[in-house]
Design a protein around this nucleic acid. Structure first.
Length: 341
DNA sequence: GTTAGGG
DNA sequence: CCCTAAC
């Protein structure tokens, strides 16, 4: 068949500009690079349909949707005359003909409007948040909003000033660690604002006609500290555990967010390492708060530590069968994982 | 459901 | 931050 899109995929996987600091996961050294087709197929299909039909279906993004409603690329709204674009899946090898319209989107239910215990959020420095008065004046379109923030009226004044890490969860054995990086003192007042409203969605239309919702939720220092703590305790990866422990009851920051932040942290830490020899090349303070030095140091140490850790150790997670190698040579001076579970 | 990488 | 492929 003349229809073969495989082989010329755009999986260039440019690993040049990437830091590539860690050896990534196991998997025979090959990370998870196997992106045959992703959204590219979508565009191709759409292109083909466009050529055939000669008509652009335009965007299906209605500007009247609520902030939280996901109206992404739902272009299964075929006009009227669709040439039924089909292609043979070379990858499958079965030559199955699949119409490009069968791309349903797995809606990610991020509607986590947990109105319970909103006080001890990640920042936990949030003082008594003002009531959001006029709770019923919200837009009727955004019906799924979380206007049910009971906001409390709870006498939460006084104990919120305690600059210590919030609930230890099941493991409260970070004694010297927390003492080591006493950045906690900062989070006492730094995240005073904290507890941002759940939804501050900004939809920025792109030139391609794609509407991307950018929730700019700046990471607070305490959050970064918590992330570092979690990584030091459980190791890079295991974001789910970290989220369930450190970011447990707190609001947002999903495992993906943690990973992203960690990546950014890594970049920041490595960028800061080689001292700014250049003159005037310091473009710091981009938009977020500059990560304190100790944090960056910790990040780098942890990064190196996780890089040299044996994959099998990571794979086995912290299961019961932790074989203690008598000649464990992976001891590092930076091995500060006290009580590594 | 979770993780890793790219956009 | 959002999306998606892979596990």
């Amino acid at each position: 068949m003349e229809d073969h899109f495989s082989g010329s995929s755009k999986n260039v996987q440019s690993a040049t500009s990437k830091l590539h600091i860690a050896s990534e996961d196991d998997h025979q050294g090959a990370k998870r690079v196997r992106k045959p087709t992703k959204r590219y197929i979508e565009e191709v299909s759409e292109l083909e349909s466009r050529e055939n039909s000669g008509r652009l279906v335009s965007s299906a993004k209605s500007s009247g949707h609520g902030p939280r409603t996901r109206v992404r690329p739902v272009h299964n709204i075929q006009p009227v005359r669709r040439p039924l674009v089909t292609r043979q899946d070379s990858l499958g090898g079965s030559g199955v003909q699949i119409p490009y319209v069968s791309r349903i989107r797995r809606g990610r239910p991020r509607e986590n409007f947990m109105a319970l215990m909103k006080f001890q959020s990640c920042g936990m420095g949030m003082a008594a948040r003002l009531v959001k008065k006029a709770h019923d004046e919200h837009d009727p379109e955004s019906d799924n909003e979380i206007e049910n923030q009971e906001l409390k009226a709870r006498p939460v004044t006084g104990w919120v000033q305690q600059p210590l890490i919030e609930e230890p969860g099941e493991n409260e054995q970070y004694s010297e660690q927390s003492a080591d990086l006493n950045d906690d003192a900062d989070e006492g007042h730094v995240d005073s604002y904290a507890d941002d409203s759940d939804d501050n969605i900004l939809t920025v239309p792109t030139a391609k006609g794609g509407m991307r919702r950018k929730h700019h939720r700046p990471w607070t220092l305490s959050e970064v500290v918590k992330l570092v703590e979690g990584v030091s305790r459980y190791g890079a990866g295991r974001w789910s555990e970290i989220k369930r422990i450190s970011f447990a009851t707190c609001s947002h920051r999903t495992a993906v967010d943690l990973k992203d932040k960690w990546r950014n942290l890594l970049r920041a830490s490595f960028a800061q390492l080689p001292a700014d020899k250049g003159v005037g090349n310091s473009k710091k303070q981009s938009s977020s708060i500059p990560i304190p030095a100790p944090i960056l140091l910790r990040v780098r140490e942890l990064a190196e530590m996780q890089s040299q850790v044996s994959p099998d150790l990571k794979s086995v997670k912290y299961n019961s069968n932790n074989n203690n190698n008598s000649g464990s040579r992976n001891n590092n001076v930076n091995d500060i994982r006290s009580g590594f579970l």
